[in-house]
Computed example of a mutant assay.
Amino acid sequence: MKKLPIKNILLLLVFLGTFLLIAELSIRITYGVRLVYEVDNELYWKLKPNQIGHPDFGLPTASINSDGFRGKEITPPHNCNILVLGDSYSFGWGVLDNETYPSLLDAFMGSSTEVINAAIPGYGLFQENILFKRIYPNLNPDVVILLLNKHDLVRTPFTNESAKEKYLLHITLRKKIGRYSELSKFVSQKINRAFGTRLGIDSLNYVSEYQDFKTLWANQQHYIEEMTAILAKDNKKLYLILYPPKINNQTASAEFYNTITNSVGSNIVFIDDLDNANLTAEEAHISATDWHPSALAHQLIATRIYQEFQRANFTFNGKTCKPTSYPHPQSS
């Protein structure tokens, strides 16, 4: 077999390099830079601090502060602090920074109150519990809000240490590649969607097999109980938002609501009536193929939280957190 001349090999390499460079620049110009995650031994991943990027190609960018959370810098002291936990629903996947319900609630409450959006895309209830216990002592929030959807309950931690180590190694390698190449992330996404594979951050399937909601909740209820026990010591409550609205799947969501509301204590304030707003599926979601809350749905969530605060006379743990700016959402 005749060998290719060195000159031809070099020309081929130059051509491939030029092609990849043009493709990389085209993706960066068209979509911008995707958000970067860091490896965490307990949480599995977290957002890299001090960055601006989009969570997925074609979606609006998100600003990540120096604490690794979405939104403006945390600037204590404030009269009142509100901590928001959750996954991509609370993070604001697919909406602008100022359209997320934590940002809207922050605007509703005014300058004397700070709302911290500590939601991280892809997190399950076990990760939200770990993050809460990690940041609660320093932030010392007066109110904690957790938006819980059915996806939180099917995301479970590894029970096998070797599987966990393999998973973390996989994330580490992807992080090193993705740090310099938006093209690699773009190709990975296209393969995922075309073949149903997972080359992204959850590729090693930490998600448990589907079970009925009662079983899922029974296995993870203790995470909520741990959080409320910590809050109860300081005479604080957890505002638990049950989402998505029943318009998504009436039977499954009804079981989801009933299972949770019938099995928790009195240290929780439920917001479980978002479906009463009668939003259509088109109004509630960012697109026909992506069921993350739309900007309109985020407005609804922020308004309902505000109304619950209003019913409590904006008093938490003996502290008054009345709004200082106007206008406020309409109360019911």
Rank of each mutant, 00 (worst) to 15 (best):
M1T: 12
M1W: 13
K2G: 12
L4S: 08
L4Q: 08
P5A: 13
I6A: 14
N8K: 12
N8H: 12
L13A: 09
L16S: 14
G17R: 05
L25Q: 15
S26K: 11
I27N: 01
R28I: 13
G32Y: 06
V33D: 15
Y37C: 10
Y37W: 08
Y37N: 14
V39A: 04
N41H: 11
K46S: 08
L47V: 02
K48Y: 05
P49Q: 06
N50R: 07
Q51M: 07
H54M: 14
G58W: 10
L59W: 04
A62D: 11
S63M: 06
D67L: 11
R70A: 06
I74Y: 13
T75K: 13
N79F: 11
I82K: 03
L83E: 07
G86E: 03
G86C: 08
S90P: 09
G92C: 08
G94W: 03
D97Y: 09
D97S: 07
D97Q: 11
L104I: 15
L104Q: 09
L104C: 04
L105E: 02
A107R: 05
S111V: 11
S112L: 07
V115P: 03
I116T: 03
N117L: 03
G122W: 00
Y123P: 01
G124P: 08
Q127W: 04
N129S: 10
N140S: 13
D142C: 02
V143I: 08
V144L: 10
L148N: 01
L148S: 05
P157A: 06
E161M: 07
S162L: 04
K164L: 14
E165P: 00
K166G: 15
L169G: 10
T172S: 14
L173M: 11
I177W: 10
S181C: 05
S181G: 04
S184T: 09
F195P: 03
F195Y: 15
G196M: 09
T197I: 12
L199W: 12
I201D: 09
N205H: 12
N205W: 05
Y206G: 01
Y210R: 09
Q211V: 14
F213L: 08
F213K: 00
A218G: 06
N219V: 00
N219K: 10
Q220V: 00
Q220A: 02
Q221K: 15
E225W: 04
M227T: 11
I230E: 13
L231A: 06
K233W: 03
K237C: 11
L238I: 13
Y239S: 04
L242A: 02
Y243N: 00
P245R: 00
S253Q: 10
A254I: 07
I260E: 02
I260C: 09
T261I: 15
T261N: 06
N262T: 12
F270S: 01
D272Y: 01
N278C: 04
L279N: 00
E282V: 02
A284G: 01
H285I: 04
A288H: 08
P293D: 00
S294N: 10
L296T: 09
Q307K: 09
E308Y: 11
F309I: 05
Q310D: 14
A312R: 10
A312K: 10
F314Y: 08
F314I: 00
F316G: 06
G318Y: 05
K319D: 09
K322T: 14
S325R: 05
H328W: 02
Q330K: 14
S331C: 07
S331P: 06
S332M: 15
S332Y: 14
